[in-house]
């Protein structure tokens, strides 16, 4: 099975990564060689095998929903790529 250029562009869209035609062609070549290597898995019969979803097969513990770190609003907003000091700002989404 091979991945065509149209699929590459679709995956890029799903991944929210913009790519031009040149890049799409490079990725087509790379991904096909990687998937060719991955196809080896089809040689194994796994009909009766349970998937391993997590290695730490423990049940998740519940904890109280408590505030532990306070007053770091400014510090967090400082990492915002936008200049605004009070909010996270994105391009306009509603007309």
């Amino acid at each position: 099975m091979s991945i065509d250029l149209k699929t590459i562009k679709h995956i890029a869209k799903l991944s929210r990564i913009s790519i031009d035609d040149k890049k799409a062609k490079e990725l087509e070549k790379d991904l096909n060689s990687i998937f060719e290597f991955i196809e080896a898995l089809n040689k194994v019969d796994t009909k009766k095998v349970d998937p391993l979803t997590s290695i730490a097969e423990t049940s998740l513990k519940l904890r109280g929903d408590e505030v532990k770190t306070k007053n770091i609003r400014e510090q967090i907003l400082k990492n915002s790529p936008d200049e605004n000091k009070d909010f996270f700002v994105v391009p306009k989404v509603v007309e």
């Binding site: 929210r16 913009s18 967090i76 990492n79 915002s80 790529p81 936008d82 994105v90 391009p91 989404v93």
Partner: peptide
């Protein structure tokens, strides 16, 4: 949006991409 590098885009989706 909240941290890290940001590029420009004409709308939200193209900014993400």
């Amino acid at each position: 949006v909240k941290y890290g590098y940001r590029s420009e885009g004409e709308n939200l989706i193209s900014m993400y991409e």
